[in-house]
Simulated scan of single mutants.
Amino acid sequence: MRNFWAAMGMAGWLAIGAASAESPVVVELFTSQGCSSCPPADHILSELARRDDVIALGLHVDYWDYIGWADSFAQPGFTKRQKSYAAAAGERMVYTPQFVVGGGERIVGAKPMEVMQAVMDLSEAPPRIEVELGREAGALLVSARRATGETAPILVQLVRYRPSSSVVIESGENAGHQLDYANVVTSWTLLGRWTGAEDLALSAPLDGDLPGAVILQEEGPGAILAAARLP
């Protein structure tokens, strides 16, 4: 797999222009250990995870489990999230691998140039929400304010993830391979809903030392308006 990516030169291309960002672009990858088409997309996510201007998240779905290998990272909630994206777009089917960039752009398959173009487009868009995070006595502090006059309801969500994991696949389509994963999502929690009419000031318990991010997203699920990594 590494030789393939080296030949294509994609890893280096994905790293071009990596820089810090006030509100990184959220890239979700719906994937599965049991899907033979997913490893190239998993590799793309690993490269994106190195960028400061991207929050790359691997969400493992469970609808491949029946084929012969139960994904050890899969959660029904992640399958539900992908189906909710499809329903919001008027689509009846879901596919793996699938990237969702910024909560809106959906890209099926391992297409690094399309993913990166979507990231660049969102990076250049003016901010719609300013968000800041802090910690105090075991609690996460979230403050935010709208940069526009919109008042649509916003979901304030906390995501935690494991930075890297390796799995030896013993059966199914990827049997006999050891697969490496980046930013494997372990939990996705709704902290609250915010109209944006007033500035947001929210406190929530924060346990453990896993990295994570706070994501502010239109209901639907819709566009992700802002995101910030845990301090």
Rank of each mutant, 00 (worst) to 15 (best):
M1D: 09
R2Q: 15
N3P: 01
A6N: 12
G9C: 11
G12K: 14
G12W: 04
L14C: 03
A15R: 10
I16W: 08
G17F: 03
A18H: 10
A18L: 03
S23I: 01
P24N: 13
P24E: 09
P24K: 05
P24S: 12
V25L: 00
V26Y: 01
E28T: 10
L29D: 04
T31Y: 01
T31I: 13
S32G: 05
S32E: 00
Q33P: 02
G34Y: 02
S37T: 13
C38K: 11
P39F: 05
A41T: 09
H43Q: 15
I44Q: 05
I44A: 07
L48Y: 06
D53A: 03
V54M: 02
V54L: 01
I55K: 07
I55F: 00
I55V: 15
A56Y: 02
H60S: 09
D62C: 14
Y63Q: 03
Y63C: 01
D65N: 13
W69F: 11
W69Y: 12
F73T: 05
A74G: 00
Q75D: 14
G77T: 08
F78N: 08
K80M: 12
R81C: 04
Q82S: 06
S84N: 14
S84H: 14
Y85G: 03
Y85P: 00
A86Y: 08
A88H: 07
A88G: 12
G90D: 12
T96K: 00
P97D: 02
F99H: 04
F99Y: 04
V100C: 02
G102T: 08
G102V: 05
I107L: 12
V108K: 08
G109K: 11
A110K: 09
A110I: 10
K111L: 15
M113K: 10
A118N: 11
V119W: 06
M120C: 08
D121T: 15
D121W: 06
A125N: 07
P127E: 09
P127S: 09
I129H: 06
V131Q: 01
E132I: 02
L133C: 03
G134P: 03
E136R: 11
A137I: 03
G138M: 03
V142H: 06
A144E: 06
R146P: 07
E150T: 12
E150M: 08
P153R: 12
Q157F: 08
L158I: 07
S165W: 03
S165A: 15
S165T: 05
S166L: 11
V168Q: 11
A175T: 10
A175K: 14
A175F: 14
H177K: 15
L179I: 15
D180M: 06
Y181V: 05
V185P: 05
V185M: 11
T186H: 11
T186V: 14
W188N: 08
T189C: 04
L191R: 09
G192N: 04
A197C: 07
E198S: 12
L200S: 11
A201V: 08
S203P: 07
L206I: 14
D207K: 11
G208F: 06
G208L: 01
D209E: 15
G212F: 00
A213P: 05
V214T: 13
L216V: 10
Q217G: 04
Q217L: 07
E218A: 07
G220A: 11
G220C: 10
P221E: 05
P221Y: 02
G222H: 10
A228F: 00
P231E: 00
